[in-house]
Design a protein around this nucleic acid. Structure first.
Lengths: 222, 222
DNA sequence: GGGTTATGAATGAATGATCATTCATTATTC
DNA sequence: GAATAATGAATGATCATTCATTCATAACCC
């Protein structure tokens, strides 16, 4: 638990207001970007006074950090559950790609904060390491390592590198989706293209990957 | 030619000073981030007075945009030349990945502006479309389409989607590299892992891809 | 050729807008 | 009534930009 959560814990008297401010901040940051967004706008959106914000958060940066941590907690938990129900690394990777891109549909503002605004905002973010974000990436690395152990993926693949490549690929598509007004493909198509590209790209034997992907389809038809 | 270049053209009397300001801005933005960077710092770094900046650029945003356009021109030109000398889409894609990641070594500040700061900075950037950046991405799409035409890559692949995925993957590794103090792999390793992943991922027949990659090695040994 | 004037570039302190944050005051809760 | 929470105008810091002034150079005149 870091300093920011500690601050929030101290102000724990009114969780409803704390989360209301966080939700409001999500919308305002998504709409305006971190730097253009004003604390007074967040206060108005949350229906509290400007000064109330400082009863719950240390400063404007703290709002963004707290928001990210709260939201990342949800995202990580959800992704863990999605992936846990599957046995095969192939299905896990497919599910990861789909769920990650699905964030956009489920909560556009939240997706924008996580994918567009936060990791971008400023130099101070360079020194901010979010453990949950690292764990999110490690989900990918764990899938890759499992695939290597089962002989599905090449031994020469570096999981810590591939996790970033896959995340980067998904993230770029998310960003495009968020920023773009007309989209030429839907989320399912995009997820499938990316997961297939990575699965066949990592494959020790592409026949085995096809079988795993086909295997999933047959299980569905039963 | 957009409005910003036109402004620069009008102030064309002292190109040396214009570029000196741009170089200084590159360093300051890379070091401090766009929002933390002050115009006065750029002026100091360029050894000009604060007010002189406004003889050459409309405002702070214009500095960033002009800088991006100047630098992107160079990056695009260089990448075109690197790729033009090659015949095979396989070699082209490999070269693209390597050259993109090599940007980091050649000019860390420039790489940071292009890869970390610019596409991130604010909501006004959402409406700013850089033609050269789009063309940079289209280099990838063109490589993919050529690969499809030659029967090397799957027909079902969407080039406009894959270009973003590859760029995103490379970009995330660049970002990690720029932001990270200790790196576990070198640029050549990273580039190879990514290009291989994408090449085998896109492959209509992985045997053919292996042959193309091997073919390159044999040509080298002669 | 030298001195004066005009012009444009450059200067940097002043200006004014912005907005995060504070804190005296008010409202609410127990 | 006391303690706590909430308020929102005031405060003060920040900094992008302006503009009166200076400087450097070219042009003009004698």
């Amino acid at each position: 638990m870091n300093d920011h959560s500690l601050f929030a814990m101290k102000q724990n008297k009114n969780k409803e207001k704390y989360f209301r401010i966080i939700q409001a901040a999500t919308r305002v940051f998504a709409r305006r970007g971190f730097y253009q967004a004003k604390v007074s706008e967040i206060a108005r959106e949350a229906k509290v006074a400007d000064g109330t914000i400082y009863l719950y958060f240390e400063n404007k940066d703290d709002i963004l950090i707290s928001l990210f941590e709260e939201q990342m907690k949800v995202v990580l938990q959800n992704m863990r559950e999605q992936v846990a129900g599957l046995e095969s690394p192939v299905q896990k990777l497919e599910r990861f790609a789909l769920c990650h891109l699905r964030l956009i549909e489920q909560n556009k503002d939240m997706a924008e904060i996580i994918q567009v605004e936060l990791r971008q905002s400023s130099k101070f973010m360079k020194s901010y390491k979010n453990e949950q974000f690292a764990e999110y990436l490690d989900l990918i690395a764990d899938i890759v390592r499992a695939g290597q152990q089962e002989g599905l993926f090449k031994k020469a693949i570096l999981p810590d590198l591939v996790k970033r490549a896959l995340f980067g690929a998904l993230d770029e598509l998310s960003r495009y989706w968020v920023l773009s007004s007309h989209r030429k493909y839907d989320i399912e198509t995009a997820a499938k293209q990316i997961s297939d590209t990575f699965l066949y790209g990592l494959a020790a034997d592409s026949g085995k990957i096809s079988a795993e992907i086909q295997g999933k389809r047959e299980r569905r038809l039963r």
